[in-house]
Design a protein around this nucleic acid. Structure first.
Lengths: 218, 218
DNA sequence: AGGCTAGTGACAGCCACTGACAGTTGACAA
DNA sequence: TTGTCAACTGTCAGTGGCTGTCACTAGCCT
């Protein structure tokens, strides 16, 4: 058992490679079909047929249509969490969150490119935003990520999430701002990582001013 | 046409009343079944049968199972939006949002009670939080409400949402905090409106401290 | 009273998803 | 190499959410 996994990590057997190929092929086919003809207009049968496997096999790789559509973005979210964990301990919570998201972008692009064309990845954000069922699933997943981040932030500061509200509130604020940013970016014209970085920075900078009592003179 | 609607508003005809009754009956039956045996374990056929209508009729009243489950909460969200619109113009944006949510609670309770037992309404929050598909749909609806609120806040301050980021960011911060609050409340033991009010106030008060550079001495 | 139309039930069908079973194909040891 | 085991897959049948269609009933209006 141990040997099998260790070996697989070094040089995956034929079985593993085949599996990986099928998985990636399904992912690419799904995203390709979704972004061209639309998510709802695409049936699982079509995706399976495009990769020449049975529908049943598709469901062995993905829990459902949604998961296939959101898998790549899920990957980028994992990278963000990892980036946050890697931030130096001296940074303030929101500083660490900000840096993790701003600097993590490039590494994410690379990681994604290993599986699907980056272009497909970027377009999937637009697809999500304009597909109710998908947006719903995406928001739920993001909510789960937020929960994970709460723990990380609390640990960074040596606090207990159950007794001190600040870790949760800080993450909530950050998550809220990231959600608007994401929405505007995905719906806007410029679907590039540069645009995302700028929007993110601008919105995070706007947090304090938006909390002010008076907006006119602020 | 005009006459028909006006008349219906004053004294609904038999037809209208019948419709209303069926609608409410379906809603009650659905929530009752959902909260007792679970959302997924309940089929639309069951709900329809409980009210003694065909499955087809259920779908004529609700776009889907989800909508039936979230309809009551949607009602409370509408009340919140109305409460926000009613806030005096001199209040600062976040002040108005805070007051709207804290004071609107009672009116919401009354409005809900006219259709379903309040107890059922409160329990539905727990159901949502523990049902992935439902939570997803709920988050999407909440996101839409946030969009509506952005406009209201911007209008209060005489700003254009497209040029000034503050309305959107302020609402994003507020929405983020409300989401954590909701989650903790729904998952916690005390499912009362009092508990919700306290949690909300506590979390909103924690926003500034959570933005501080240093948490230890803050 | 009789015509109009909103609301309903019954039926057929699509699609996402699941369980069960059998066939095939890599992995690994004898 | 060969045989055995386990993993992976295809096929089939079935459930449940959801939609289109059509005929029929019942409230509404003149």
């Amino acid at each position: 058992m141990e040997t099998a996994e260790a070996t697989a990590a070094e040089r995956p057997g034929l079985r593993e490679r085949k599996k990986q190929r099928t998985h990636d092929a399904l992912l690419r086919a799904a995203l390709e079909l979704f972004t061209t003809q639309g998510y709802e207009a695409t049936t699982v049968d079509e995706i399976a047929e495009a990769v020449d496997v049975s529908q049943r096999t598709f469901f062995r790789y993905f829990a459902g249509k949604e998961e296939a559509a959101l898998a790549v973005i899920g990957l980028s979210q994992e990278h963000f969490v990892a980036a946050l964990r890697a931030r130096p301990a001296h940074e303030a919570p929101l500083e660490a969150l900000r840096n993790a998201v701003l600097e993590g972008w490039d590494a994410i692009g690379e990681a994604v490119a290993r599986i699907v064309p980056v272009d497909l990845y970027l377009r999937s954000y637009g697809m999500i935003e304009s597909t109710p069922a998908l947006l719903a699933a995406h928001l739920r997943r993001t909510d789960e990520v937020a929960r994970e981040i709460e723990e990380i932030v609390a640990e960074r500061e040596g606090l207990d999430v159950r007794t001190d509200p600040r870790p949760r509130v800080a993450v909530a604020v950050f998550a809220g701002v990231m959600r608007v940013t994401e929405r505007l970016w995905a719906m806007g014209g410029d679907l590039s990582m540069e645009a995302m970085r700028e929007l993110t920075a601008a919105h995070l900078d706007a947090v304090r001013p938006s909390l002010a009592e008076k907006w006119r003179n602020g």
